[in-house]
Amino acid sequence: MARFRNKKKVFVKPVSKKQQATVDHVTGDKIPRSFVFSRYRLPGPLKQLQADLRKLMLPYTALKLKENRRNKLKDFLNVAGPMGVTHFLMLSKTPTAPYLRVARTPQGPTLTFKIQEYSLATDVVRSQLRPRCPQDLFKNAPLIVLSGFGTGEQHLKLTTILFQNIFPSIDVNTVKLSSCQRIVLLNYNKDTKLIDFRHYSIRLQPVGVSRRLRRFVQNHQVPDLRNLQDVSDFVTKAGYGSESEADDEAATVTLASDLGRVNRASTKSAVKLQEIGPRMTLQLMKIEEGLCSGGVIFDEFGNGDGKKTKDNHEDMENDEDEHDEEDEENDEEDGDDIEED
């Protein structure tokens, strides 16, 4: 059996035949791509979180990345090169807490976050009365909003840069508003030193139009006029007085171009955000120079440069294990175990 397995391993699957453009044809910027995968085995809920993160990173990610228990970091790295993958998101689990590592390939740096709390997309959807998921929600990359990172500390600046570059940049002069459907928010809390990670969908609504009319225009359904004396009532009656959507002046925008049937460039539109999940509360633990290796730039506990404290020792151990195994299997071609659909 062992021989068979070895033979199977030698077969190298041709990686992604249709080469996607690695460069945005309008702005000329390099499109960042990402892999979301796990290190070692994950329990059920974390697997779900991984799937959610992959969905969040769409469209420039491998949604159905298949990983093997025996895949080493090096395998992913081997595949990442030809496919133009620039970022790795790695989930792992220790008895104390799950961890998320965000790394830039191939050189690093690597940020290690401890996931204090998390909620899955399904949890978020379940908590909502009317969950919303338009068809083309995941066809475009999300916007990213980073707030509270400007405390001047170096590690926060690095975090900002890393997260800004994880999604393709937007050129204000050419961007289409219809492609801005999602937003990822990272909010740094100075006092608790925690980062709130949220994922919202963006919805635009015309301001100053009654709900009835909006529904009518959106749905194209014949309205129920039984209770009305005149057709004009339908337009003039405000409906229920409980319209809590007190239009915030701060949340209204004037659009550059028409967006759908309802939102015209001439009228004002209100921006509504609805959470789609996942939700995470992250704590930055440490920053390493290399890809899951190298000198420690920042450490939550030690705060020293290149100094290894006891807390990050377990992670280092893991990495060392990895290296040992890699050395043993160096002669084997491991890259074929990763497939992308």
């Binding site: 916007l143 909003v145 707030s147 937007i170 204000v172 961007v175 508003l177 801005c180 937003i183 928010l185 909010n187 949220r198 919202y200 963006i202 915030d248 701060a250 949340a251 209204t252 925008v253 004037t254 659009l255 550059a256 921006v271 955000l273």
Partner: peptide, 14 residues
């Protein structure tokens, strides 16, 4: 916070 960010981007785009 997120809404503020979106509004700012949209205004800039506009």
């Amino acid at each position: 916070v997120a809404t503020k960010g979106v509004v700012k981007l949209f205004n800039a785009v506009n």
